[in-house]
Amino acid sequence: MDNITICRCEEVTLEDIKNTAKKYNCTAREIKLRTRAGMGYCGGRTCRPIVDTVMEHVTGEKPGDNIPLKVQPPVRPVSLSTLEGKENEK
């Protein structure tokens, strides 16, 4: 069961997350940065709830009012030229 994929974009398994948590004894945020779970192409839209659940399971951190693992723009995949075009407009 541990070989189940959690983050599809970055191909992170439950095992990867558990091992990282054990090895570094770290926070959910650090696990995310180390494994890249939820940081792939879809911006976490597919896996965010399950990444949160797994993190709660392995670290024991309970959900508070703040969104765990902060949302960062861009929230959709955009090409660099789009971002660049914008800079020119400003």
Binding site: G43, R45, R48, P49, I50, P63, G64, D65, N66, I67, K70, V71, Q72, P73, V75
Partner: peptide
């Protein structure tokens, strides 16, 4: 089928406070 959750990403990047 694992249920639904509110799609709030834009409210988050706009700096809106949240409640669980």
């Amino acid at each position: 089928a694992g249920g639904l959750y509110p799609l709030t990403e834009l409210a988050a990047v706009a700096g809106c406070p949240f409640h669980y």
